[in-house]
Simulated assay, not measured.
Amino acid sequence: MAKKWAELGTAQRAVVIALGAVQLSLAASAWADLATRSREEINGSKRTWAAVIAVNFVGPLSYFRWGRRKAA
């Protein structure tokens, strides 16, 4: 059963906050990168990648791995 925020210890709260910050940083970086690239530099639809990036850690990491085309 999931614990409520009030039931977490100080260290557990710190870990949750740190992981949340990492997740938001990854997503913000991926969205910023996506916004600055042309359609030709993206594998697939920019709209689809924008939605995928919103999925936890998996989305931004997937975008950085498979969403961007390699420079020639």
Rank of each mutant, 00 (worst) to 15 (best):
E40V: 14
K46N: 05
L34A: 11
N43I: 13
S45R: 02
R39K: 13
A32V: 12
G20M: 04
W31A: 10
A11N: 11
K46C: 03
A32M: 15
T10L: 12
K46F: 02
A11S: 09
T48I: 11
S38K: 10
Q23S: 10
I42L: 04
L19W: 14
S29Q: 15
T48F: 05
N43M: 10
R37E: 10
G44M: 00
Q12E: 00
A21N: 13
L34T: 01
Q23D: 10
A27K: 06
G20S: 07
T48M: 10
A28P: 07
I42M: 04
A21F: 14
I42Y: 02
V22Y: 05
V16P: 03
Q23E: 10
R13D: 06
R39M: 13
V22P: 01
W49C: 03
I42K: 02
S29F: 04
L19D: 08
T36C: 14
R13G: 04
L34D: 03
R37K: 12
A18L: 09
Q12C: 03
T36S: 11
A11P: 12
A32L: 15
W31T: 08
I42S: 04
A18C: 10
R13V: 09
G44P: 00
A27F: 14
Q23H: 15
V16I: 14
A14E: 10
L19V: 06
T10F: 11
W31F: 15
V15N: 01
L24E: 02
Q23C: 14
S25L: 14
T48V: 07
A28K: 09
A21L: 13
A35P: 08
L34C: 08
Q12P: 01
W49I: 08
A35L: 13
G44S: 03
V15D: 01
S38M: 05
Q12F: 00
W31S: 12
L19H: 15
S25K: 06
V22Q: 02
G20T: 01
Q23P: 09
A18M: 05
R13N: 05
V22G: 01
